[in-house]
Write a protein that binds this DNA or RNA. Structure first.
Length: 483
DNA sequence: ATACATACC
DNA sequence: AACTGGTATGTAT
């Protein structure tokens, strides 16, 4: 990982950081624009060895027809909490009618086909692996697995709390008259729907026009991110009593606590039996000191010996549920085999880097560059075993690596209009860079057209980028070339 | 290194 | 009329 440094982020002074740099960016285009600055990837060590991954349930290679896929998509959504008694046939029908022939869906299908090709390629490569190679790989995995088991920690009590229907809960808190009505936060896209709306089939990630079609009475309210940050901060204040280092997830709607120390001090707790927060204690966790904190009466919690498992557990038993993974190897493995692969987080070298390397380091370095190894295999193995040493849920305290500004605007091919749009976005990005105290090193212009095709063009490295003017100067040539 | 894609909320 | 926006990471070339 190149030792590029930049006049990076002074704000959160991290002493003499040799840390990664950052950048600034902007974008514009005929329908949508998205711009961002990125840095060279963290690089770091990637592990090798050979473990199995499993494909994300995307069908399509000779799989079901498109409408069957759409139906399957819906069925999974109807299985969500609070969706009993929903007329799934009808909803599937409406979703198909309104969205199946959209340019978005067409683009999505194209992406899916690319994934299928990649999967086919991997499977073909796998088939070519000889039996001796397989045996060697099995031995490597067995050895690594033994290492991981030997270093497995089960004494911690990690909790991930998920603020259910968070954005909608905040909206309903402020406008109680909306609470009984179907409500969606968002606009072009549904970010969150309350449980009333979900009964109509409205769900997050759905395009707004489909949601409206599903539920004519649906009320939309725009997202208010500053407010969410505020409410989350208030909730964190409460959680801090239980874990001074409590961290908040990116979208503000979840946080992670390590209750190990709190429980040792305050509660009689049987390590072998695990921990179940009593309803009362959980309520205390959520609401203890202030009613201001009454965010969502239906928060979920995952409780487990590490944050990987706690995060996965928070997704079980919605709404208003909690799931405990007991601190035994058997319980952990049983939980994993009962949990769809889809629920596991993607293996990430960065996560691995973030973990103390007691167990990981040596074998990682040794196997990284061997040919024929599956990248990320060590991470996959860790996830498969439910092994995770991450100290926290979020990456609290990590230095920001990029900052971006994007905007969806009306379709246009007018160069002049696009330049104006670009300028507006440069101003927006400049302002957020200023607010964040960031200076850019590298600039990327991203353009999305009306068929959802995305182009990204990077400016050659140059002087630090700090203002709207500098952003524009670097971005404009990129745009001109695309006109 | 660049472009393109993915995951997550 | 018409499928977000922001950050970080992964893959292919």
């Amino acid at each position: 990982m190149a030792a590029v440094t930049s006049a990076a982020a002074p704000t959160q002074g991290h002493g003499g950081v040799t840390n990664p740099p950052l950048g600034g960016a902007v974008a514009g285009s005929s329908t949508q624009g998205h711009g961002g600055v990125t840095n060279p990837p963290l690089g770091g060590a990637v592990a090798g060895s050979s473990a199995a991954g499993s494909s994300s349930g995307g069908p399509s290679s000779g799989g079901p027809s498109f409408s069957a896929q759409a139906r399957a998509l819906y069925v999974s959504s109807s299985a969500k909490a609070g969706m009993d008694g929903v007329d799934s046939e009808k909803i599937a029908e409406i979703v198909l009618q309104t969205a199946a022939n959209s340019p978005f869906t067409a683009h999505q299908r194209k992406l899916d086909r690319a994934v299928d090709r990649r999967v086919a390629k991997l499977l073909a490569a796998k088939r070519k692996v000889s039996e001796p190679e397989r045996a060697a790989a099995r031995a490597t995995v067995a050895a690594r697995r033994a290492d991981l088991e030997a270093s497995r920690r089960l004494e911690r009590v990690c909790v991930v709390v998920d603020f259910d229907q968070f954005y909608a809960a905040v909206a309903m808190r402020d406008r109680p008259e909306l609470a009984e009505r179907p409500l969606a936060v968002g606009g072009a896209l549904v970010l969150t729907a309350n449980y009333v709306a979900r009964r109509w089939g409205v769900r997050s990630g759905q395009p707004g026009f489909v949601a409206k079609e599903l539920c004519r009475q649906l009320t939309f309210v725009p997202a208010e991110y500053e407010k969410y940050a505020e409410v989350a901060a208030t909730a964190m204040e409460v959680y801090r009593e239980y874990d001074p280092a409590v961290s908040c997830g990116m979208g503000y709607d979840e946080c992670s606590l390590d209750l190990t120390h709190y429980l040792r001090r305050r509660v009689r707790w049987d390590a072998t039996g695990g921990l179940t927060l009593s309803a009362r204690r959980r309520t205390a966790l959520c609401f203890s000191t202030s009613d201001e904190c009454l965010v969502a009466p239906f928060d979920q919690a995952g409780i487990a010996p590490n944050f990987l498992l706690a995060k996965m557990g928070a997704d079980v038993n919605k709404p208003d549920g909690q799931h405990t993974v007991s601190p035994t190897v058997e319980a952990v493995l049983a939980f994993l085999s009962a949990t769809p692969t889809r629920k596991a987080p993607p293996p990430s070298a960065a996560h691995h880097e973030a973990a103390p390397t007691a167990a990981g380091g040596a074998s990682r370095g040794a196997s990284t560059t061997r040919p024929g190894r599956v990248p990320q295999a060590d991470q996959l193995l860790q996830v498969a075993l439910g092994w995770c040493e991450k100290e926290r849920g979020g990456d609290a305290g990590a230095m920001q690596k990029g900052i971006s500004f994007s905007d969806t605007f009306g379709s246009s091919d007018e160069p002049a209009a696009l330049r104006r749009q670009l300028w507006t976005m440069c101003e927006g990005l400049g302002a957020s860079m200023l607010a964040a105290g960031l200076v850019g090193e590298k600039l990327t212009l991203r353009l999305k057209d009306s068929s959802f095709e995305v182009r990204s063009r990077a400016a050659p490295r140059g002087a630090a980028i700090g203002s709207a003017g500098e952003l524009y100067a670097r971005a404009l040539p990129l745009l001109e070339r695309e006109l």
